[in-house]
Design a protein around this nucleic acid. Structure first.
Lengths: 117, 117
DNA sequence: CCCGTACTACGATGGCTATCGTACAAGTCG
DNA sequence: CGACTTGTACGATAGCCATCGTAGTACGGG
């Protein structure tokens, strides 16, 4: 076995066809979660939860990541004590072509408008 | 005056730069409202509230239309006793290019998947 | 084995919100 | 005017949810 043994701590994810637009939109309608997704998209690689500097406590952060995972927006895998987060780009693009990119552009624009204060 | 006199019943709308992505996504994260927006997009013209056959009562319908208006997704104008609803396509496209179209495609795909039950 | 790091679980709380029913207002048409 | 259509206002309710704090678990390193 060259790969690490499967951790007993597995996290439930929706399969591709269990992902619902309603849930995805709800997940992204929260500013904190939208920010998480934006940073994940910029990173292009999986990031641990602690890599994010969010304006909420750790328990709230856990909550947001769970919402994103359960809606199918991100994938979470344990790696030691860290939990690595990655965008489910392939699944989202297959289900809703163009949506994720449009959302990311929109988020960037909104952030730019906000900064212009 | 060839046009109708301005009704005293005017409805508050956000200006274009008051429209926030968070609010738009939140407005669209409700299945009823997403359905309203889809039908509006298909219609290409303004529709009165009563043209929609929604699985909720009239008062709830009023509520949903107000959420859509206050988030900047639709525009509402009184025309006699009817209230005409139109998508704010120009504003949304200017603010978040490609987002509305991607959302409409996504909604259509989700509906198709749901029908495949 | 003990400690530190990373994250979770649980319970509480306050606020939002989708829903409804009923009563009402505004406008149109006979 | 009076009836009807269309939509609103208001109050109630129940459920969801973002947030927190505290206590706890899992894992890796010394």
């Amino acid at each position: 076995m060259t790969t690490a043994p499967p951790s007993p701590r597995v996290l439930p994810h929706p399969t591709r066809d269990e992902i619902r637009l309603d849930s995805v939109l709800h997940a992204l309608s929260d500013p904190v979660r939208l920010r998480i997704v934006s940073e994940l998209a910029d990173a292009e690689a999986a990031l641990s939860c602690s890599r994010f500097d969010l304006p909420v406590t750790k328990s709230t952060t856990t909550h947001h990541f769970r919402v994103l995972r359960e809606s199918g927006v991100i994938q979470q895998v344990y790696e030691g004590t860290a939990k690595m987060n990655g965008l489910r780009r392939e699944d989202l693009d297959a289900l809703f072509p163009g949506l994720l990119d449009a959302l990311l552009v929109a988020a960037r624009r909104q952030a730019a408008r906000d900064a212009r204060v």
